[in-house]
């Protein structure tokens, strides 16, 4: 089993990733799919931030000019996640705009129902 239960942050992040992935795959509604994508986003961010954390150290803001690397946590994951969160919003907005155009075209957000109603009938 190794470190499975001592790495509880990573464990939770992986479980959240799988749940978001299944929501993205299985749900038929586009809004649900987009929420699943957001859950995957945040789980990856949680994993990155958990890898950067070191127990007992402080956030990477230099206190009193003391530049000792053994006092602060890793600043790299924080920088990556900070930009990632904001980019996740813009991708969410883009996906929602696409979903709204889908609704305008097909009058439904259910992917399976739309396929049944229009695509198969149209091909026959």
């Amino acid at each position: 089993m190794g470190n499975l239960f001592t790495n509880y942050y990573e464990l939770a992040a992986m479980l959240l990733f799988v749940i978001g992935f299944l929501t993205l795959l299985i749900q038929r509604n586009l809004i649900k799919k987009i929420i699943g994508m957001n859950i995957m986003d945040t789980s990856v961010f949680l994993f990155l931030a958990a890898k950067g954390y070191v127990a007992g150290r402080m956030s990477p803001i230099i206190r009193d000019g003391v530049t000792d690397a053994s006092l602060y946590i890793n600043p790299i994951p924080a920088g990556l996640v900070l930009t990632g969160i904001v980019v996740a919003v813009s991708t969410t907005a883009f996906a929602l705009a696409l979903a709204l155009r889908w609704y305008q075209q097909y009058n439904s957000l259910d992917v399976d129902w739309t396929a049944l109603k229009y695509l198969l009938k149209g091909e026959k």
Partner: peptide
């Protein structure tokens, strides 16, 4: 996850 280094 089980083979990753320990958290913290």
């Amino acid at each position: 996850v089980a083979f990753l280094p320990r958290f913290g």
